[in-house]
Write a protein that binds this DNA or RNA. Structure first.
Lengths: 233, 233
DNA sequence: AAGTGGTCTAGACCACGCG
DNA sequence: GCGTGGTCTAGACCACTTT
């Protein structure tokens, strides 16, 4: 294993476990050099990777600061989420996590290993200003990861739970985006009319655990809260 | 100016101008070192930037190869585009570039400098397998860039023309995505029924020319060709 | 075997933030 | 003034590709 990967993994684990919480500073590059008997070139390569993967930001003259990583999880953030989602009551479980057979609702094909057993399924309704804006269906392989009960979600976040409790990280996202007419069921959940246009997004998250994916299908009412995406180089 | 930026800009310009066409190899890192009196650390930093911005890929043992850069321009590529768009007749001008007043069709606010004069507007209909899938409205500031006639588009690409002829590069994208019901006009262009759900995307491209943006609004029939997006770290 | 990129060492000086 | 990250030099050895 390469030395910069050793350093990178060391701090990644420390950040995930909370030893370096959000907004804290990592040791200085010189300290890390001494701790790992490495030169700054190597240490900076490791930190550059953490930077690229969205774990830290660099502050010239101050240090490397741990940041909230959610924002790097692909494109779809709903406009106003970051502000409006701060208070509680942002998401409601309309179906607690249960074990069931795989349905044919996933757009993406399952890997062989995933298809062997049953899946865990849960559904949430996300609200902004008490207004329902997103119906979120989620599936993952029950044979590869135990059922995580909704009460166990750290800060209400499934991904945070995955990362901190199981050390499984999201390393990629694939998405298919379509406009659809709302079904009666979706319409009633989003309090719109049947047949109104909704945004449908099929998601597959690739994780650091081989052959383990999170599948999602989202129905969004984009009337008041369009999906936004920023990409800057 | 930093030395790695000088090297980076040098090869960026050479790539844009076609001196290093797609699939060609840049000089070896050692050659670049000699040419710029720099060390490999510095040269590699410059090449890393070109890599990150999607100009080149690295091939261990062979060299740094120039790649097609379109794929890095944000999220929305239409499924099947890369295959189906190879043949001609992929896009039809439904409105040749003309100079007109700014309309209120842009979602994003104009910068002061852009709002001073008129704008250049053009509309295209994009086809896949002879089937219309995307109505594409485009605006840019006529006071900051001359009107480019459709015949002057290099390989039919406005961005390629911007880059190679005017050395203006896309450095960021903002998008708002909504589901809408098709208007009569849009429906007839996409050969669907009025009221059918269509995907609406408002786009603002940020460019390397300060305060100069490209604005777009797209109406997509996603029935047969959903929008896809992949993000991997 | 020769040439390429990938990793790493051991230093140096500069620019920024803060007490 | 001191500690931090940002840039840069001069060199070494390794892993991969091609001839």
């Amino acid at each position: 294993m390469k030395k910069y990967e050793i350093i990178e993994d060391h701090f990644k684990k420390k950040i995930q476990s909370g030893d370096f919480p959000v907004d804290s500073l990592l040791p200085s590059e010189y300290d890390i050099c001494a701790r790992f008997s490495a030169t700054r070139t190597t240490v900076r390569k490791a930190l550059d990777e953490l930077l690229r993967e969205g774990y830290i930001k660099k502050e010239h003259g101050r240090g490397s600061r741990v940041i909230e990583r959610i924002k790097t999880l692909g494109l779809p953030s709903v406009k106003g989420f970051s502000n409006a989602m701060k208070q509680e009551g942002d998401a409601v479980f309309t179906q607690e996590p249960i074990i069931q057979k795989w349905s044919d609702q996933q757009i993406f094909a399952l890997s062989d290993k995933e298809g062997e057993g049953d899946c865990v399924y849960f559904q949430r309704l996300r609200l902004i200003d008490q207004k329902p804006v997103l119906v979120e269906n989620n599936w993952y392989s029950g044979s590869m990861l135990e059922l995580v009960r909704s009460e166990e979600f750290l800060d209400g976040s499934f991904f945070k739970t995955l990362s901190q409790r199981f050390h499984i990280d999201i390393i990629g996202v694939e998405q298919e985006i379509m406009a659809k007419s709302a079904s009666a069921e979706i319409a009633s959940m989003l309090t719109i009319q049947e047949g109104d246009p909704v945004l449908f997004i099929a998601v597959r998250y690739q994780t650091s655990l081989e052959d383990f994916h999170i599948y999602g299908s989202w129905f969004c009412n984009t009337e008041d809260f369009p999906i936004v995406s920023n990409t800057f180089s």
